[in-house]
Design a protein around this nucleic acid. Structure first.
Lengths: 345, 345
DNA sequence: CTGAAAGCGCTTACAG
DNA sequence: CTGAAAGCGCTTACAG
């Protein structure tokens, strides 16, 4: 690749060639020339030269002058599941619809990266920012606030910034209730059901754990702390958990509540190696993936409403929705997979 | 959300408060103050004020002055599969390692979006651009070239720009050869094998089709055009194809070469509804997904070497590799899933 | 050791 | 109808 070569043409180049001034070129190029009653011949000449030069505006210069960047930022942990991929794509779509340029950056759940990414985006003058899947949003929100960049936390509670969340607790309750029902239908013991995945003290994980516990309590089962296994987001961690459960004297769970698609990945790996142990287990997963439907076990998935989450975030950013310390709650959608068994009504 | 509020602080604000000049502030803030023998007391004072103001540099202004943006762009169709998600994440990692800010934008395979996205990125002055999964790269490359933005096409052949590609043909050949072998082992008829997915005239699709045909020919089977079904990338299209094949008098294929993970999604849907038809079929998929390993059919996947593809792209962008009209070819990796059958040595 | 000045590529109020 | 001028927030060669 040739290192950067010929100077890019500017409005001055156009002005010279079209024998007019940079001011006029600017007016013509950004379309306000009608308002300024520029001579159509002049305009035509300018457009002609601009085309022949392959002129491409320097948006950074424009932005500096206008104090606007036309950039909209979003921070996500990664793109490797349908939830975050969907968020990124929906965000991009919405941002483009508004004539802005989307800048989505992933952080791999690393707090240091999270901070530098936010600082960079703010330094790049993004006009708004949606933050999701970070460790601690408060400090990050403070950076935005201080720079006057409107931001919202997605699926994260907000102390200093507004937030939009999925109904993690309610969704989890439903998911667990259906799981209990399915386990009972198959003659299993609901008190062997376990919750696997997520991080301790992480908002979404804790909310889901609460919904899980509540559903069991309401079914007359006294939940013990050890039933909720927050082993993180690595597939291998979930796999190890399943291995341990298989060896426990309580016996393998009749139902497993999987807290994320990565944990389901770990479960699937375990299942492939120990099919005989898993074959009468029922799964609930608080996440959605088309291939999870192909697991040979009955699976109930909760699909987060990505479109609505983004829409609500923009409603807040637009100021359409009054600012409130309470998060806007978006209900997720149930997807029941009737593999080898009809587990829900 | 409060609309953008208090003016962001600038080096002038710092200069005023620290009773010095903007020049000195700039020198101190960007670390070149030692070289300029700035009084450490002055420097300390400036740093102090800067911190108290929560100063955040305006990178766009800096970039305008320095004629550099510190932005690196990548264009991909979407994030919904592991290949593109992996490319995006690896790209981001590499870009950050170089102290640049990654800007990955998805186009949903829409040619109009592709063009406007590239134009926007160029107008935002990205310092380099990696393009993948677009309809026609030539025109897009021309935009970059004209603006002096180094670009490379990833998994796309380049007329006017260099490119890095997976060994689609070779990978496909191997994938097909293994498929034939597995079909024969199970007593199936390899001449019923079909190729499903991808787009006519699309580079990767055509290369893979060639590898597919060659492997069959080499196995002594005369390939007919209709065996290669380029039905696009929608899951539903692949599903419909499977439905049609199930009704054809030739009988359901003993092996299916699936050209993309989205087509595999369509196949899985069909399989769930017509398990009895599919149960003795073997799958080859030119794509990789962890859950595809959980399908109840023997599956061979070709996993593209995402890290190497990105690394080679940067080698070209860095000028480490001499410019050549021939694409740099990266071999993909075989992943054999031994579900219910041991299909490869 | 430090500051004034020019300039990056634009936009737009203003004067003609 | 059109151009000169100022200014967005930085950097840095230059002069002191």
């Amino acid at each position: 690749m040739p290192k950067r070569q010929r100077r890019r043409s500017t409005i001055y180049d156009i002005a010279t060639q079209a024998e007019t001034s940079a001011s006029t070129v600017s007016l013509v190029l950004n379309g306000s020339w009608r308002r300024y009653r520029i001579n159509p011949d002049t305009a035509e000449r300018i457009l002609e030269v601009s085309r022949s030069l392959g002129y491409n505006i320097n948006l950074r210069a424009r932005g500096l002058r206008l104090k606007q960047s036309r950039l909209a930022g979003m921070v996500i942990p990664h793109y490797r599941n349908r939830f975050f991929a969907g968020l990124a794509e929906t965000f991009e779509h919405e941002v483009r619809r508004r004539g802005l340029c989307p800048v989505v950056v992933s952080t791999q759940r690393d707090p240091v990266t999270e901070r530098t990414v936010i600082e960079t985006l703010v330094a790049q003058q993004v006009e708004l920012l949606i933050i999701t899947g970070v460790d601690d949003p408060d400090e990050l929100n403070a950076i935005c606030l201080n720079a006057g960049v409107p931001c919202v936390n997605l699926d994260l509670p907000g102390r200093s910034a507004p937030s939009v969340v999925s109904d993690n607790r309610g969704g989890s309750y439903k998911l667990t209730a259906l799981l209990i029902e399915a386990v009972r239908e198959r003659g299993g013991d609901p008190s062997t059901i376990r919750f696997v995945g997520g991080r301790p003290n992480e908002y979404a994980t804790e909310e889901r754990a609460r919904g899980f516990a509540q559903a069991l309590e309401d079914a007359g089962i006294a939940v013990q702390d050890e039933w909720i296994i927050r082993c993180g987001y690595q597939p291998i961690a979930a796999r190890t958990v399943m291995q341990t459960l298989a060896q426990a004297r309580a016996g393998f769970p009749s139902g497993v509540f999987i807290n994320s698609i990565t944990s389901l990945e770990g479960f699937a790996e375990f299942m492939r190696s120990k099919w005989e142990i898993c074959q009468s287990t029922v799964l609930s997963c608080f996440d959605w993936d088309p291939f999870a439907a192909s697991l040979p076990l009955p699976t109930i998935m909760m699909r987060q409403n990505v479109e609505e989450l983004i829409e609500q975030s923009f409603a807040i950013l637009d100021g359409t929705v009054p600012h409130s310390p309470e998060p806007v709650v978006v209900p997720p959608t149930l997807e029941v997979i009737r593999t080898k068994s009809n587990i829900a009504a």
